[in-house]
Design a protein around this nucleic acid. Sequence first.
DNA 1: CGCCCAATAT
DNA 2: CATATTGGGC
Length: 303
Amino acid sequence: MREEEESSSWFARWEEQLPSQEELMPLSQTLITPDLAIAFDIPVATGAAPPGANQNPGLSLHHLPASSRPPPHSDPESDLNSAAAAAGGDEPARTLKRPRLVWTPQLHKRFVDAVAHLGIKNAVPKTIMQLMSVDGLTRENVASHLQKYRLYLKRMQGLSGSGGGGPISAADAATDQLFASTPVPHHFLSRGSVAGPEPFLPYMPVAALQHHQQITAAMQQQQQQYYHHRNLGHYGSPTGGGGFDHAFPNPAVPHSGMHQMVGPAAPPGMGFPPTTLVDDLEPAKRGGNGERKVLTLFPTGED
DNA sequence: CGCCCAATAT
DNA sequence: CATATTGGGC
């Protein structure tokens, strides 16, 4: 077995970024509202997570080598897992319509990481989904997102180098928002699928991820059902003007009234806010049309 | 079957 | 508007 010093850097980071069970579990608990529990038929122990009782887990970043991963202890909270599992394909969620998934920057990041580590070749919806191990995520979710992401990548390549290629439509620029939040790994932008084998291992950190990750996409979904957003507030990107601005380096997007994404804009050295469970601050008085509340969770991980 | 892409629907 | 869904090609 040979090792590349380069590889160690990436997967070291990968591991570090991974929220540990200790971190995720309590968060998940906290994030699960009574509503959710009920809707999902989660046996949420009565008073297991009383609102307001936010106990913050000590943030201990111990990065465990994949080889030394501690076996999953019997966690009483494991049922949270089944919560989404139930929603996913076991329980009577089969015929039920799944609410739209919200791709938070964090979620997207996981996505990008997964793709990056899989290599373009293996980065197909199913695999990505598995690697991400986000509970409640469906292949279709990923496929859809992947499709868009690919378009985004193409767009980027397209205009890099050409001084005045195609004008970026406002729609495009606007939709890039999410994607701009996560730096695109270098080799992504290289020409079409590289036929050669990935410079790095085919798979491996899978084991690390394979563990039940408690990021339940289902939680988001449950809260949304459908919703809508009427928010015009864009930063300078004229539709057909001459000045296309580049994607912002960071998602410190001061949205006017957009549903709050957890602010990954956290300063380096400082962790994320304790429990950034933010809900829409706007009492839905936009245009007057029924707007659904949107909750965006995911205080997990930052840049 | 699963992927990919475009178009379309919500 | 962001995502989901569908449809056709592979």
